[in-house]
């Protein structure tokens, strides 16, 4: 069988048909996987939120404050702000999702703050740090707990007292920047917001 000649008609037909078939198969794959992908993302986020505020029951995204929060956080991207309520529906704190820059791309993390703005935990969702070095921000025992107790209403003061990890300085500083960003969000936005949102 001879190969089709490179006439304009043949060329256009070949490219168009290929693209149409490709588009159809991609649409089908997307439809099949969409639900699962969304569920995976929600599950990962919820796991992280539960880890930073164990008493939390309901994590509700507060879309209104996002713009102000982003401004407050400066260079660190903020993904979402959650209002956390306990089992009986009382307000117990905030979750801030941030993506500070580590050594290899952004470190996706969630910072939990209690109602007084004290950091209750930090949990890393995803990162691409160097295995064995940068990954110590997760594997080094007790390291990430140092952020617990930092005061969101005066985060700059807390951030002065910070232990990095030898060999993983950039990754460690990245996590600190995430916590600082969450603190700033609390300081500038959430602290004053609290009255309004907290009214039962």
């Amino acid at each position: 069988m001879r190969r089709a000649e490179s006439t304009p008609l043949n060329m256009v037909t070949a490219v168009l048909v290929t693209c149409a078939v490709a588009a159809t198969s991609l649409t089908l794959t997307y439809e099949v996987t969409r639900e699962r992908i969304l569920a995976q993302e929600r599950a990962a986020e919820e796991r992280a939120l539960r880890a930073v505020i164990p008493a939390g029951e309901e994590f509700e995204i507060v879309p209104d404050v996002l713009d102000e929060a982003r401004e407050a956080a400066g260079d660190t991207p903020v993904g979402a702000v959650y209002r956390v309520t306990g089992v009986d529906g009382t307000f117990i704190g905030w979750g801030v999702r941030a993506a500070p820059r580590g050594y290899a791309g952004p470190i996706q993390l969630v910072v939990g703050l209690d109602r007084a703005g004290i950091v209750s935990g930090v949990s890393i969702i995803t990162m691409n740090e160097t295995p064995g070095l940068g990954t110590k921000i997760v594997t080094e025992e007790g390291w990430i707990e140092q952020f617990v107790g930092w005061d969101g209403s005066d985060i700059a003061a807390s951030a002065r007292d910070f232990d990095a990890i030898a060999g993983a300085t950039k990754s460690a500083v990245g996590v600190r920047e995430g916590v600082v960003a969450a603190g700033r969000v609390y300081e500038d936005v959430l602290m004053s917001e609290m009255g309004e949102v907290d009214v039962p």
Binding site: R2, M11, T18, T29, T33
Partner: peptide, 27 residues
């Protein structure tokens, strides 16, 4: 291979490859 004219083979290959890569990506 008999249906794809020589001159447009690279774009056609790329579309085919990109489709399978996207399928892997989503999966």
């Amino acid at each position: 291979r008999h249906l794809v004219p020589e001159k447009v083979r690279i774009p056609v290959f790329i579309v085919i490859i990109a489709s399978f890569v996207t399928i892997v990506d989503l999966t």
